[in-house]
Simulated scan of single mutants.
Amino acid sequence: MFRPVPVPALPPSTALADLTATGDDHAWLAGTTGVFTSRPSAPLILRWTGTAWRVEDLPGIAAAASLAGISATGPDDVWAVGNSAGRPLVLHWDGTRWHLRTPPAIPWAKAVLALAPDDVHVVGAGPDVLHWDGTDWHRTAVLSSDREGLQTVTATGPDDIWAGGAGLAGVGPATYEYPVLVRRTATGWHEVRGPHVDHGHVTRLAVATPEDVWLAHVHGSDGLAVHRWDGERWRPAPLPAESGRLSLHGVAAGWTWGVRTTRHSFETHPAFHRWTGTAWQDVPLPDSLARTPASHVGLATAGDTTWAYLKTAAGVHVLRHTGP
């Protein structure tokens, strides 16, 4: 079962975006405050110190800003990305304080993958990927069209990186979305064939091993579908069996999460599932949260610890699951 961990009181205008963890005692949660208010939005990062969650002191940013992704290699190397004043926003934690890093411009930063202090990748809208080599930023075009972009990135190592997103085809009412998938090997970035789907977008990628890659794909009213790469081909994975309507939001290696609604209700309740090897198993929440409408649901794993977050009318909640 997930067990709640106390978090500092946060404004009702808080929106949660992403979570990363590097071990039992180190995790970070990224989001934005001031959403849908008259005040400029501002980036927010919570850090787990091993005993408590605390709000981080971030560098001052003159314009409204938001965070979309966060990734860490260890307790002294954490990267968060978002956007401010039409440019990508990059923050780096060195174990002592947060610093602003100024990358080349891309239309919109959506996700970051930190593999080492000198090997960081940022993806977002548009065909380019940004890479930090420890000294300089480099921008590389990895997609073939300006109407294509990436929103998720994962890896088994520096020479096996996967990124996915979507492109737009057609014009006007005939416009539709199609999934895109790229992979970086020792020879560079290449477009690769994903699951056999023609419409929608890749919303999440996660890696267990080079022969076990998890992909979440969304297509309109069909919702989210899960596929797995076995080293040779993509295979569809079954979806969790739920009463009512289940809207999946993301997938990790062996986990998926989202919200469920009951019949004749528009309230969304958090739902987390773990893969047993043959089927999905619902992971229970404390009764008070299981019955409470929620949004902004997410999850990250590190070793035997899984962190999850969700937002209710009462505020932000962080939960911890340890062991099998």
Rank of each mutant, 00 (worst) to 15 (best):
A208G: 12
T203A: 02
T175N: 09
V213L: 01
V213I: 09
D230Q: 13
Y176G: 14
G157L: 09
E191N: 10
H199F: 04
G157R: 10
Y176V: 12
A208S: 12
A225N: 15
A216W: 03
D159S: 15
V182F: 05
E191L: 04
H190D: 10
S221G: 08
H227L: 08
V192D: 11
E177F: 11
G164K: 04
G220R: 14
G188T: 09
G188S: 09
R183E: 08
P210Y: 11
H199W: 02
A166P: 09
G165D: 05
H190V: 01
T185V: 07
R183T: 03
A166L: 10
G223T: 08
Y178N: 09
D230E: 13
G172P: 14
A166K: 14
A166R: 15
G157D: 07
E177L: 15
V192M: 04
V213W: 02
E177Y: 13
L205P: 11
P179G: 07
A206S: 12
T185A: 13
G188Q: 09
A208H: 08
T203P: 00
G194D: 02
H217T: 10
H219I: 05
P210Q: 12
W214T: 04
P158M: 04
H201D: 07
D198Q: 15
G164W: 00
W189T: 06
G172A: 13
E191C: 01
W214L: 01
V171L: 13
P179F: 01
V207F: 00
P158K: 12
G167M: 06
D212W: 00
P195I: 01
S221N: 13
L181I: 03
R184H: 13
G170N: 12
T209L: 01
A186S: 14
T185S: 15
R184A: 04
P158N: 11
D212N: 10
G157N: 10
H227S: 15
G157F: 08
H196S: 10
P173Q: 12
H201R: 15
D222M: 09
H196A: 12
W189M: 03
V202T: 05
D198G: 11
G170C: 08
D159W: 11
H201P: 02
Y178L: 07
G231V: 08
D159G: 14
G194N: 03
W214H: 04
V192I: 11
A163M: 08
V182L: 05
A216P: 10
V226Y: 07
L181W: 01
D159C: 07
V213Y: 03
V202A: 00
